[in-house]
Amino acid sequence: MQIFVKTATGKTITLEVEPSDTIENVKAKIQDKEGIPPDQQRLAFAGKQLEDGRTLSDYNIQKESTLHLALR
């Protein structure tokens, strides 16, 4: 499925993911596309910060959802 990640600079990244993917996997995909190390990424959805060990389906993130990326 496709999801979107909006960066602090307003850029939107499109990612191909599975509901079973962990947040860690998603951060690795962002690193592949943007070169941002996962340990510098903070992802949020619906106002909640997402934890590495959880999956997209844990957070009820569905196709075409938009996550927000902040850098630490």
Rank of each mutant, 00 (worst) to 15 (best):
M1S: 03
Q2L: 15
Q2Y: 14
Q2S: 05
Q2F: 11
Q2G: 06
I3P: 00
I3V: 10
F4E: 04
F4H: 06
F4G: 03
V5L: 12
K6I: 15
K6E: 12
T7R: 05
T7Q: 09
T7G: 06
A8S: 12
T9R: 13
T9H: 03
T9Q: 08
T9S: 09
G10R: 02
G10S: 09
G10D: 14
G10K: 03
K11T: 07
K11R: 05
T12S: 08
T12P: 05
T12F: 15
I13C: 02
I13H: 04
I13N: 01
I13W: 08
I13M: 06
T14R: 12
T14N: 09
L15N: 00
L15G: 00
L15D: 00
P19V: 11
P19N: 11
P19Q: 07
S20Y: 14
D21H: 11
T22A: 09
T22C: 03
I23C: 02
I23D: 01
E24M: 10
E24H: 09
E24N: 07
E24S: 11
N25H: 11
N25C: 04
V26T: 06
K27T: 02
K27F: 02
K27I: 03
A28Q: 15
K29F: 06
K29I: 08
K29W: 06
I30C: 02
I30L: 14
I30W: 01
I30G: 00
I30H: 00
Q31C: 04
D32T: 08
K33L: 10
K33S: 09
E34A: 11
E34V: 07
G35M: 09
I36E: 03
P37D: 15
P38M: 15
P38D: 06
Q41S: 04
Q41C: 03
R42C: 04
R42D: 14
L43G: 00
L43C: 01
L43V: 06
L43P: 01
A44L: 09
F45D: 02
F45R: 02
A46P: 02
A46F: 07
G47E: 14
K48H: 10
K48C: 04
Q49H: 11
Q49S: 08
Q49C: 04
Q49M: 13
L50R: 00
L50M: 10
L50D: 00
L50A: 02
L50C: 03
L50K: 00
L50Y: 01
E51Q: 05
E51Y: 07
E51S: 06
D52S: 12
D52N: 09
G53W: 11
R54A: 11
R54D: 10
R54P: 06
L56M: 07
S57A: 10
S57D: 12
D58F: 11
D58C: 03
N60I: 05
N60T: 07
N60Q: 11
I61K: 00
Q62I: 10
Q62L: 09
Q62E: 12
K63F: 10
K63Q: 15
E64A: 10
E64N: 10
E64T: 06
E64M: 15
E64Y: 11
E64W: 15
S65P: 02
S65K: 05
T66L: 10
T66I: 14
T66Y: 08
L67W: 02
H68E: 12
L69V: 12
L69F: 05
L69M: 10
A70P: 02
A70Q: 05
L71W: 10
L71E: 15
R72K: 13
